[in-house]
Amino acid sequence: MPYVFDVYGTLLDVDAAAREAASESGMEALAAKWPELAAAWRARQLSYTWLRTTMQRYTDFWAVTEGALDVTLAEMGLDGDAALRARLLSLYTTLPTYDEVPAVLTEMAKDDQGMAVLSNGSPKMLEMALGAAGIASRFDRVFSVDALKRYKPDPLVYQMATDAFDCAPADVVFFSSNNWDISGAGAFGFTTIWINRAGKLWDDLPARPAHVVTSLSAAFDLI
């Protein structure tokens, strides 16, 4: 029963780039706006992945991330700040994990069930991010949507895991903080655990999660 994890927002804190930049000298323009920027950047980033998959106009996740940031900065009147843009993108390549993640992944790996990430991130992004976070060695496999040129929640993305592990969908335990990702994985047949850190409501989507928890530590207690 392999354990498969989303990366951005599940293992890595996607708000950290804006939060860290706002705390640095010379970035005062962001100090009061970073939560708004982080939320809008993330929402636009995800929206672009869904639209590009629907239109069959794939570009990799780094290009999507850059484009989403550029429009968000323009929307907030910050598009003239080249230093801010560069710093935010630099920080995004080395996002920290949530506090409990490294220790929990270490314990999960001891189960010897197979450990993988399944991410929208490009191979280069994932190599940099997982390496910088110090968790790359926990995983046997790294699956990127770049191999298929389509984004989650396309069913073919989830099929990469079942093909690689040679197992039925229900044998995969899938962890994500994104309810649309949980819905897509559940619709494919994965056993899903929603890491609902923010206490969000479930959207009107199919395939509700098997379990809902507020941290990866709580998820570990279920398996």
Rank of each mutant, 00 (worst) to 15 (best):
M1G: 14
Y3Q: 06
D6V: 03
Y8T: 04
G9Q: 01
T10F: 00
L12M: 08
L12D: 02
D15Q: 10
D15R: 04
D15H: 07
A16Q: 07
E20C: 11
S23E: 15
E24Q: 15
G26F: 09
L37K: 03
L37S: 02
A38M: 08
A38K: 02
W41G: 04
R42I: 12
R44Y: 11
R44C: 11
L46F: 01
S47D: 14
S47R: 14
Y48M: 11
Y48H: 09
Y48W: 09
T49N: 02
L51M: 15
R52Y: 08
T53W: 01
R57L: 14
Y58Q: 03
T59P: 05
D60S: 10
D60A: 07
F61N: 05
A63E: 13
T65W: 07
A68Q: 05
L69C: 11
T72P: 02
L73E: 02
E75Y: 07
E75P: 00
M76L: 13
M76D: 03
L78Q: 03
D79R: 08
D81H: 06
L84C: 14
L84Q: 08
R85A: 14
A86R: 13
R87Q: 12
R87I: 09
L88I: 09
L89Y: 10
L91F: 09
T93I: 12
Y98P: 04
D99G: 09
E100Y: 00
V101E: 01
P102I: 08
V104I: 09
V104H: 00
V104N: 01
L105A: 07
E107H: 10
Q113R: 15
Q113H: 15
G114P: 08
M115S: 08
A116K: 06
S119P: 05
G121L: 05
S122V: 05
S122R: 09
S122A: 13
M128W: 14
M128Y: 13
A129V: 04
A129F: 04
L130G: 00
A132I: 14
A133P: 10
A133N: 13
A133V: 10
A133R: 04
I135N: 02
I135W: 05
S137D: 14
R138A: 09
F139W: 07
R141K: 15
F143E: 00
A147M: 10
A147F: 08
Y151W: 10
K152Y: 00
K152T: 00
K152E: 01
P153E: 03
P153A: 03
L156F: 05
V157L: 04
M160V: 07
M160S: 08
D163C: 13
A164C: 11
A164T: 12
D166K: 15
D171V: 12
V172L: 15
V173T: 09
F174K: 04
F174S: 01
S176M: 06
N178Y: 00
W180P: 00
D181G: 06
I182C: 02
G184I: 00
A185D: 00
G186Q: 11
G189I: 08
G189P: 10
F190M: 12
F190N: 05
W194F: 08
W194V: 01
K200Q: 12
D203I: 15
D204C: 14
L205P: 03
A210G: 12
V212E: 10
V212P: 00
V213N: 01
V213Y: 01
S215A: 04
L216T: 01
L216C: 05
L216R: 02
S217M: 05
A218Y: 00
A219I: 04
F220M: 06
F220C: 03
D221R: 13
I223L: 13
I223D: 03
